[in-house]
């Protein structure tokens, strides 16, 4: 399983949003972190990868080119967790999961489906809320339900648009740990747009740093998260600590 993104461009009307996006090929088992300030093009890139937005260039996953295969075939392999959590309606999480599975004709019997939903809710700490109306749940809980909706489809390519923005510190770590484990166990690929540089450094195998719709740097965290890149993209002065094992620690000194 391999994801290849080369020379990708996208437009809103005549305005070009993404400029010739290319990053290293992503192999199965890897989590990619998309980094960048607001309006850097992360969400647009996510929409292009999910097939929701048309683009120019090549997006090839598992030998299928998005531009050539139909939307239906692409969505059999790809699931997206959008930035917006499920709407706060009177629908229950279980009904939303169930209707999603049935609308997409996922091949589960009723028994298998209820077990799967229960298991995903258990993983995400949602078991106590599975039959509560969505409008009674917090933004963080609904964000976790958004992730559960992506998990129910067992995607080979999992796209997460700011999956932890409404979560507290503990659940940010749990969610990214869960994603990393799933991806590594089954040799799948995940791309997550993130704002938290420490989490990105800790959980992502490859980072893509963006600004104004362009890739500024891509590669392992120790190559991408360097003071020069962060100053250029975020306009902040940083100190990077590489002495501790695992991943680089970033200390933001101040705004430039």
């Amino acid at each position: 399983m391999r994801l290849s993104v080369k020379n990708l461009s996208a437009f809103y009307g005549k305005k070009q949003i993404l400029h010739d996006i290319t990053f290293p090929d992503v192999d199965g088992g890897m989590v990619v972190g998309l980094l960048g300030p607001n309006a850097s093009g992360k969400s647009t890139l996510m929409k292009c990868l999910s097939g929701e937005k048309k683009s120019k260039g090549n997006i090839i996953f598992d030998d299928d080119n998005l531009q050539e295969v139909g939307s239906k075939k692409w969505h059999e392999k790809v699931a997206t967790m959008p930035q917006t959590p499920p709407a706060p309606t009177a629908l229950t999480p279980t009904e939303l999961m169930w209707s999603t599975a049935r609308a997409l004709a996922l091949p589960y019997s009723d028994k298998e489906l209820s077990r799967k939903i229960e298991s995903i809710f258990n993983d995400l700490g949602l078991s106590d809320f599975q039959l509560d109306a969505l409008h009674t749940l917090s933004g963080g809980k609904r964000q976790l339900i958004g992730l559960a909706l992506a998990f129910i489809r067992d995607p080979e390519l999992l796209l997460l648009d700011e999956p932890t923005s409404a979560l507290d510190l503990r659940w940010r770590m749990i969610v990214l740990e869960l994603v990393k484990n799933k991806v590594q166990q089954d040799g799948r690929v995940s791309i997550a747009a993130l704002h938290d540089l420490d989490l990105a450094a800790r959980y992502c195998d490859l980072l893509v740093l963006m600004k104004n719709g362009k890739v500024i740097a891509s590669g392992p965290s120790e190559e991408v998260l360097i003071p020069e890149n962060l100053a250029r993209v975020y306009h902040v002065e940083t100190e990077i600590d590489l002495s501790k094992p695992g991943y680089p620690r970033i200390d933001v000194v101040g705004a430039i």
Partner: peptide
């Protein structure tokens, strides 16, 4: 009916599933 229920989860969710 399934699609309409799914749509009550929000347009962003429905679009993300390829609807």
């Amino acid at each position: 009916v399934w699609l309409l229920t799914l749509l009550r989860g929000g347009e962003a969710h429905a679009r993300s599933t390829g609807v």
